[in-house]
Design a protein around this nucleic acid. Structure first.
Length: 202
DNA sequence: AAGCGTCTCAACCGCCGCTTT
DNA sequence: TAAAGCGGCGGTTGAGACGCT
């Protein structure tokens, strides 16, 4: 059965914009996430006035707008991590991405397809044949080992978020916004505020 | 300089599983 | 408890950039 017919929210598709994001849309989304945080992506699209689905907003943020994203080529170190983790986990790109701070599952997926798809090394753990639950347990063990490294990286990401707050100072001008980027309670005013932001010449 | 093939990356689609009602 | 809503994930595609002939 077609997803669009089954799921009501996604079924009204004509009203959603598709295709490449404009700089204005990027700024709106960035400002909103900086102000109110991620998650609840459907409400993000409503509150910002963006004619994008919640899924599309999430994807844009996760793959492109996040301040802690690392740009540029995959380094040899990263490549060896990808190879190692892929041997253990298979195509679990999001899990692999969590072990490579600043890289998205999309980055890794694209990189793998380009460089290794047609020369896949034999998986030492034969991951393709393992049940998902077993994979998850193995993955959790692996992730536990990465924890200390991730804590360090999170600290770096926190610094970068503060930097973003500097880059997008107009977010602080909005009603309900606070200087430290903390999330405030939703109100009937916020739609008005975001509607106003949508019309800002930014 | 033009044509062609390859690479890179942004974005969409469909499915799955968790959460909420 | 079942259904609906939603977020997350993996697979796939298409357009633009780039390099080679």
């Amino acid at each position: 059965m077609d997803e669009g017919t089954k799921r009501g929210a996604d079924a009204v598709e004509e009203r959603w914009r598709k295709g490449p994001w404009t700089p204005q849309e990027d700024k709106l989304l960035t400002a909103h996430v900086n102000l109110r945080g991620g998650g609840r992506w459907n409400s993000v699209s409503k509150l910002t006035g963006l004619r994008r689905s919640g899924k599309s907003c999430r994807l844009r943020w996760v793959n492109y707008l996040r301040p802690d994203l690392k740009r540029g080529k995959i380094t040899p170190e990263e490549e060896s991590i990808i190879l190692e983790l892929h041997a253990s986990w298979g195509n679990r790109w999001s899990a692999i991405a969590r072990s490579l701070p600043g890289r998205t599952d999309n980055d890794i997926k694209n990189y793998w397809r380009t460089h290794f798809k047609n020369s896949t090394p034999p998986s030492k753990n034969n991951v393709e044949n393992k049940p998902r639950a077993q994979l998850l347990t193995q993955q959790q063990d692996e992730e536990m080992r990465m924890t200390m490294n991730e804590i360090e990286q999170a600290a770096v990401a926190h610094d970068m978020q503060q930097e973003m707050a500097y880059v997008y100072p107009f977010t602080g001008m909005l009603q309900g916004g606070s200087a430290d980027g903390s999330i405030t309670d939703g109100s009937s005013e916020e739609e008005v505020s975001w509607g106003g932001l949508w019309h800002l010449d930014i």
